[in-house]
Amino acid sequence: MAEATLRVYRGDKDGGGHVDYKVPVAPGMVVLDALHYIQGHQAPDLAVRWNCKAAKCGSCSGEVNGRPKLMCKTRMDDLPLDQPITVNPLKTFPIIKDLVTDVSLNYRINKKIPAFTPRENTDWRMQQDDIDRVQEFRKCIECFLCQNVCHVLRDHQKTEEFGGPRFFVRVAGLDMHPLDSVSRTELLKDELGIGFCNITKCCTEVCPEDIHITDNAIIPLKERVVDDYYDPIMWVIRKLTGKK
């Protein structure tokens, strides 16, 4: 049976380094299987998050050969096995131990977003055509790979001023809900700092759910912010009609 070497980061906030493990490769094996093998046979204390092992829960996010991935979906046979496979924790979030990071930042950002607020007197009928767009956003499994890869958070660490792709997707899902009655453009502009996004699309590239984060969520939201804050003609129209 073929053998692979996994070069896994072991350590915590006080430091650490990479440790090599040899793992037998089975057909269809994914990186998470290899990590489980290591836990079961070599390092029972190797910390890694996982739940469903079927790309539905978004727990096992990591960086495989430097690329942000769900490890339950990253096939060993798609990787060059002649060299060690580097497995790192998500870079953007503070490390807890080994491959586990502190993602609590995301839960804090989430709390800034006003919840779904239905219009009054609705009969709750909705057309599929009206919700198709929103259903794409609701596919998000909160793996936070987009938050991890976004350079605004990753390189520039704008963790307080910037919401990040996951939360633009969430806002898009709420703002474009056909029955929602709240506008979130002020939140987007100020608290979630959508202007920091320079639409370089890495969030879309890493999304395991194939959500078109940039094209379908962020850019349409940027356009909505333009409507409310940057478009001079829209501003004049608002002044003349007295509408918000």
Partner: peptide, 14 residues
């Protein structure tokens, strides 16, 4: 037997 520390230790959890 459990190896390692009490910090996020799947062996201990198991």
């Amino acid at each position: 037997r459990v190896d390692g520390s009490r910090m996020f230790n799947p062996g201990w959890h198991l």
